[in-house]
């Protein structure tokens, strides 16, 4: 199959005067695990609703393996979905829901489904009414990972899961990638995105503000640099990309660096540096750079 697994071209959704998603253009190539980040209300769920054809775009279009997203009867043969807040028919047991979704979905590997039920620790004999939100989420996750769909669209899939199940989830994502499947993962769990995603897109107020590979993204953002030196303290304040210089003891400095390290190294050369350490930012710090401390609580 040529072309991307997911494509959005000028995708826009307005509700009255509110623009929930503004001109999103994005390609997710086949086989990639793509993380989609943004604070509450940034438009992540709107994007997913548009990708699934649940909502109609005000402008632009979305495609799943080249099929228009609004042609759900065809596009949905190629994807499986885990909603953010899973609701199930209360009288059906977990096993019955899985049976229904296998019969009406994009095709299911039943042996894999049984294995996933074990791994996620789901008791499928209970009526959905008695499930906690985490257990409802497990039902949807088992159905999605056991499906043969080449694309998985996951909206906050681990928000109600305990750490053990979350670990299984990460394994399942890695396995899906090994099978050549594409994963579109919306998440607030930045450590999880960092651990499993190849590329990340960051959404703010309906606009895509950054798309990059995870290592690249870290490089582009503030690294924390610590230097130990014997000579005169280097004068760093005026060096472009340097911020927050502070002394952490005799002959020690710490500062943050954005962009190329060349100019800083030039300044440091004169100071008789004896040790230098550079710590790349965690994704959380990248995220906070975009939104400020108020965005993540």
């Amino acid at each position: 199959m040529s072309g991307p697994a997911l494509r959005a071209v000028g995708l826009t959704k307005r509700y009255g005067r509110t623009t929930a998603l503004d001109d999103l253009s994005l390609d997710v190539p086949v086989g990639e695990v793509f993380g989609f980040l943004g604070p509450n209300g940034a438009g992540k769920s709107t994007t997913i609703r548009l990708l699934l054809g649940f909502a109609r775009p005000t402008a632009g279009r979305a495609e799943v393996f080249g099929v228009d997203a609004s042609d759900v009867a065809r596009a949905h043969r190629l994807l499986a979905h885990v909603p953010a807040d899973v609701a199930l028919w209360p009288k059906l047991t977990g096993a019955e829901v899985l049976h229904l979704l296998a019969a009406t979905g994009a095709g299911t590997d039943t042996a894999r489904r049984d294995e996933l039920v074990e791994r996620f620790g789901l008791d499928p004999s209970k009526p959905a009414r008695t499930y906690s939100s985490g257990n409802r989420q497990k039902v949807a996750l088992v159905a999605a990972f056991a499906s043969r769909a080449p694309l998985l669209v996951l909206d906050e899939p681990t928000s109600g899961l305990d750490p053990l199940v979350e670990r299984e989830f990460r394994r399942a994502v890695v396995e899906a990638r090994e099978q050549g499947r594409t994963v579109f993962l919306c998440s607030h769990q930045l450590a999880e995105v960092e651990a499993v995603c190849d590329r990340v897109g960051i959404l703010r107020a309906g606009r895509l503000v950054e798309v990059a590979g995870v290592p690249e993204l870290r490089r582009l953002h503030r690294s924390e640099v610590t230097v130990t030196f014997t000579g005169e303290p280097p004068r760093l304040e005026a060096v472009p990309g340097v911020e927050g210089v502070e002394s952490t003891g005799e002959g020690r400095l710490r500062f943050s660096l954005t962009g190329s390290p060349g100019p800083v190294l030039g300044q440091l050369a004169a100071a008789g540096v004896t040790a230098l350490s550079v710590r790349e930012p965690r994704l959380e710090e990248v995220f906070l750079d975009h939104y400020g401390e108020g965005a993540v609580r």
């Binding site: 699934l52 759900v72 009867a73 949905h76 979905h81 979704l101 009406t104 979905g105």
Partner: peptide, 16 residues
């Protein structure tokens, strides 16, 4: 109440 979200994510057209 979002019960329809999972079945609707299958290859089932709205009209059907």
């Amino acid at each position: 109440d979002r019960r329809l979200a999972l079945p609707a994510a299958g290859p089932v057209g709205r009209l059907r």
